[in-house]
Amino acid sequence: MTSQITVTTVLPQAKIKVKKPSALRRKFMLNMIGLWSVLLLWQALAGLGIINSFLLPAPTDVVVALWNLAKDGTLFVHLAASLKRIVFGYLLACAIGLPLGFLCGWSRTAAELIRPIIEALRPVPPLAWVPIAILWFGLGDMSAYFLVFLGCVFPLFFGAYTAVRSIDRNQINAALCLGASRKLLFVDVLFPAALPIMMPNLRLALGIGWMCVVTAELIAAQTGLGYLIQQSRMLFQINNVVAGMVAIGIVGFIMSAAVEKIERHVNAWSPSERS
C-alpha cells in the first residue's frame, strides 16, 4: 500500500513543487528586466524633454511626490478612507450575495424567483449608478459603499451559486446518511466544498470593488485616493495625480496577492489547484 502512494501521488506533486531555483531566478530576472526597461525609457524620455512633464512627470518626480504625500500624512488619510469603503462595501456584498447564491444553488424554486432580478440588474455597470447614488446618498461614504456593493455583489452571487450547484451529490448524500443536521451539512460540508470553487470569484469581486471605490471617489466623495487624484488634477499637481495612481495600483496589487495567498491555503486539499 505504501509503495503505491509514493508512486501514484507523491511523485507528480514533487515534480510540480520542486521548481528548479535557477528557473525561478531566471523568471524573476526577466520580469525585472521588462519592468525596469520601461521605467528607464520613461525616465530617459522625460529627462530629454521628449515627454512634456506637464502631461506626464518622470518616474523620479512621481516617487518624490509619493514620498511627500506620505510624509505629511495626506496619502494615509486618503488611503484609510478608500480602504474603509472597500472593506464595508465588500462585506456588505458578501453578506447579501453569498447567502443568496447559496440559496439559489440549493433550491430550484429560489433560483427561479431570484435569478431574473439579478440578471436584470447585472448588465448595468456600477458607473451608471453614480448619478442615482449621489441622489440617494449624497457625496461621501454611503454612495461609495453602495457602488462597491453593486460592483461586488454579482460576482459573489454567481460564485456561490455555481459552487453549490457543482458540489458532488454523493458528498451531500454521504453527509445526510451520516445523520448531518442542516447546520452541520452547511458548515462542515457545503461551505468548505464550495469555497475553492468560489475563491476566484471572491478575488474578482475584490478587484472590481477596488475599481468602484476609485470611481466613486472621483465623482461622489471628498476623501479617498480617487478624490486625491481628482483634486490634484484640478490644482494642476500632475505629480500628485500620477503618485495617487501608483498608490492605487500598489494597493490593488497587494490586495489581490493577499487573496491569492488565502486562496492557495484554502485549496491545499484540492490537488487540482496545487500547481
Binding site: D168, N173, C177, L178, G179, V189, W269
Partner: peptide, 27 residues
Amino acid sequence: PNATRTVVFQDYALFNWMTLQKNVEFG
C-alpha cells in the same frame, strides 16, 4: 436518509478538506 443506514460509495465521497480522522469523526 438517516444515520441508521450509512453508505459506502464507489467514488469514496470522502470530504476532501478533512483529514481521514475528521472524516471518520463526522458521523
